[in-house]
Design a protein around this nucleic acid. Sequence first.
DNA 1: TTTAGCACTCAAGGATATTGAGTGCTAAAT
DNA 2: ATTTAGCACTCAATATCCTTGAGTGCTAAA
Lengths: 339, 339
Amino acid sequence: MAVLGHIVTEYVSSVIPVSSKTVAMKMGGDVSSATVRNIMADLEEKGFIAQPHTSAGRIPTDRGYRRYVDMLRRNLHQQKAEAERLANEYHQRVNTVKDVIEKASYLISHELHNAGLAMLPAIQNFYLKRLELVKVRAQTVMAVLVTVTNAVRNYIIELDREIDQKELERISNFLNSSFEHRLMLDIRQSLKGIISGNREEDREALSMADMALNLVDGIIRDGIENEIYIDGLDFFAEEPEFKDLDTARRMMQVFSRRSELVDLFRGELPDRGLRVYIGGENSSELLKDCSLITCGYSWEGKAVGRIGVIGPRRMDYYNALRTVSCLADIISGKLEELS
Amino acid sequence: MAVLGHIVTEYVSSVIPVSSKTVAMKMGGDVSSATVRNIMADLEEKGFIAQPHTSAGRIPTDRGYRRYVDMLRRNLHQQKAEAERLANEYHQRVNTVKDVIEKASYLISHELHNAGLAMLPAIQNFYLKRLELVKVRAQTVMAVLVTVTNAVRNYIIELDREIDQKELERISNFLNSSFEHRLMLDIRQSLKGIISGNREEDREALSMADMALNLVDGIIRDGIENEIYIDGLDFFAEEPEFKDLDTARRMMQVFSRRSELVDLFRGELPDRGLRVYIGGENSSELLKDCSLITCGYSWEGKAVGRIGVIGPRRMDYYNALRTVSCLADIISGKLEELS
DNA sequence: TTTAGCACTCAAGGATATTGAGTGCTAAAT
DNA sequence: ATTTAGCACTCAATATCCTTGAGTGCTAAA
């Protein structure tokens, strides 16, 4: 399997199909190119590498990269020096959660020379300190939410019926008194419990809980927009695969549709782990020439958001895995500090 | 000058250098290609058109486009049908200033098949309703600002000395009582007036005004980030000039550096007029292959923000000018409605 | 002043030849 | 049973040359 490793690393750095001779050289000269050719034929049969054309060297397939990454992860350990260097980047002004996350996307992209992504902690994972509800129009409510860490965010919610300010005040009083210091997600669950547990005995309370649930859902819905930071798009322009017009077009589309990127992250939200998607393994057709590496970060012990990197399939996985996972740890630490 | 017009429109739609024969055809057959050639030689000498190579047709230069656009603007009048169609797009849910502006960038890009830009009203132009100041750390203050139109925004301000919550409350009381319903920009001016007019007679008031000015400046500074919406990047990928790698690279960089785009708009903020920058006329080197068309919109009678479109130099200026200026009017109207 | 006519230019596209990196297979060596 | 040297074979990439035709500039006649 050492051969596969050499093929991957060599191809990643040189971007030309690698020949049996090159591999033999890299192995230290104790095997001949003919031997390597035999091994290569074997690897090709198993689907780990492929030839662009008959008289060319080999390039790794998705499966090949996958095997390589799996091998890599087994002996991937943080390097202290590296971790410290990254952590140091944070010693300048980072005062808000937004700062921490925005900087993360910047660091990822500049460390790895690819597109860096970082999502804000999902609203469901905030602890409620105080909620104000203001009617701004017949069926429209503005919610101002203060979290226990004093982050303030406001949301616009569309309702399906008119509501008056009095009613809104009753609801916000109810929510503030019943659910202070509770997780938004828990609040939502509790409200659902109240609604399903209530057997018409108290119509007043039922109606209130119902509307409260509507509002909480609205907040969560509105919160999912614009919660992702992207940096380093321009690195793509430097990559040789950008020469292929079709690929270039697809790349532009990927980054033009933020909502799809957000979905990508949301799908695996409750997870803290490091994930790798190589080429065709990605759920989106647009990403079939890319690899995506993501890792969750935590806050108050819970996985609340994710960061990651998108690059060409031909990517320095070793550095990418290390940097992303390491940065996720750093972010988690920073967020605790901010609390 | 009709010849120049034909060269521009033809080149814009076909993307191939236009020949004397083609122009003669477009003129209705009442001139021969040889005559056109003479005129062309003239136009070339004056720098309005150029030849890619000896045996090719002509393409417009920056100066040529400029002349064309100037001619165009003289007889550019809104078409009612067009204006109504655009206005109708707004009949769906637009409840916040943010919605209006975000939708504008979307509409521009989809109408013109190029990148649409729209900036939020600049914070300096907000009317203050209420301001809360909260200390979040030794030298860090969070400001929650409510405008007379009930938009809520919050800002993080770094100070150069420590401050306590008591002092912050005195300042916010002072600002709220003295400057309710005043423009942020005016407030800033007034504070400056107080500071310079005060001759040591009241050190207490001076110190307070000084800190208040710091805070207001901080709000304005923090507010300039993330105030621009961009849509339709992917249209670029379809343009033929994207085939040129260097151009493609530059495009990616343009859109990767939001801050530069923001600067572009901020530079001409107090202006309500329609502006056109063609190729090299742009201040940024990166935009030398692009044209930028912007127009300011107003709120409470003041120019508070701008929208615009970025496309290849070879752009449908007629439609672009009409759509952008028309949309600026519509936005201005919508904002009044929201007040 | 306009136009027909003609020689001239040059990018683009096609056809053909050359090159060389890399392979697969076979037969000898270990 | 592996490993390796040797050799014929393949094919993308590059270079070279040729052809074509769109378009021009200039001149001389209308």
